Amino acid sequence: MDRADAFPATARLVLVYNADGGLLNAVKDAVHKAVRPATYPCSLCALTYGWAAMHSDWRRFLFRLPLEKVFLHRDEAAKALGGTQLDLPAILLDAGAGEPLVLVSAAELNAMQHRRALMALLLERLEETGVLAL
């Protein structure tokens, strides 16, 4: 089977943050990122969010992708992904059946220094899967 056939038009991009959801946790995380950024555990959040909001270039990039986007915190991920265990943070491609495909792993995100590099890598991976024809 061709890789493009493996991911239907209903495939979703799932971004899973290594942080818990909720307003109190968001405030705590913002302070942590500001005071001790080197020890902040979510590289995906550190790359793509400022103090309180998603960086505008990342937001534009994501919402131009022709996929549904799902944003999950670690406390929501196991339930939403059917108990799938994975290292966080991660960016996944979920076709709705079976385990989601890891597009960008925790190790890759943790080593990443710039959003532009993340955007390029994500486009490359989506093209490799056949979801995007660039």
Rank of each mutant, 00 (worst) to 15 (best):
P8S: 14
L15H: 10
W51N: 08
A26C: 01
Q85S: 15
A106M: 03
G83Y: 03
R12N: 02
F63L: 12
V70N: 05
L72F: 07
A30Y: 00
G83H: 03
A78L: 13
K79A: 15
L109G: 05
D75K: 11
L101G: 07
L92K: 10
G22N: 04
E108S: 10
A133P: 00
P100V: 07
A90E: 03
F7A: 06
R59I: 01
Q85Y: 06
L67N: 08
L132V: 13
M1T: 13
A19S: 14
P37G: 06
T39R: 14
A4Q: 13
L13H: 03
F7G: 03
Y17I: 03
T39F: 01
G96K: 05
N18T: 01
D57G: 12
Q85A: 15
E128A: 14
K33I: 05
F71V: 07
R125C: 03
G50R: 14
S56V: 11
A117L: 11
N25A: 13
F71T: 06
F63A: 02
L121V: 04
P100A: 07
L134A: 15
E127P: 00
P66T: 14
E68K: 13
E108H: 12
H55S: 09
L122C: 10
D2P: 15
R125I: 03
D29I: 00
V104T: 09
F7V: 02
A53H: 11
L24C: 00
V70D: 08
A9P: 00
V70A: 06
A34C: 04
A120D: 14
R36D: 11
A107E: 15
L13K: 01
A120Q: 13
K69N: 11
A95R: 15
L72W: 05
L81K: 14
A30D: 01
R36N: 10
M119A: 06
H32A: 09
P100R: 08
M1N: 05
T39Y: 01
D20P: 00
R59P: 01
V14H: 02
N25V: 01
M112S: 12
K33C: 12
D87T: 12
A53N: 07
R12D: 08
R36T: 13
D94V: 04
V14K: 01
E128M: 09
A11G: 04
M54Q: 10
A90C: 05
R59V: 02
T129Y: 05
T84M: 13
A107L: 12
A46D: 14
F71N: 07
R115A: 15
C42F: 07
N110V: 02
E124C: 04
S105A: 13
A133V: 05
L65A: 07
Y17L: 02
L15P: 00
A19Y: 00
G83Q: 05
E128D: 14
G130N: 10
E76I: 08
L92D: 06
F63M: 10
R116S: 12
I91Q: 04
D87V: 06
L118K: 04
L123M: 09
L122I: 07
D5T: 10
L121C: 07
T129I: 06
A46F: 06
D57Y: 07
M1C: 06
R59C: 04
A52I: 02
V131T: 09
L118C: 05
A46H: 12
C42V: 11
T84L: 12
R64K: 12
Y40M: 09
G21L: 04
R3V: 08
E128Q: 15
L15M: 13
A106E: 13
Y17K: 02
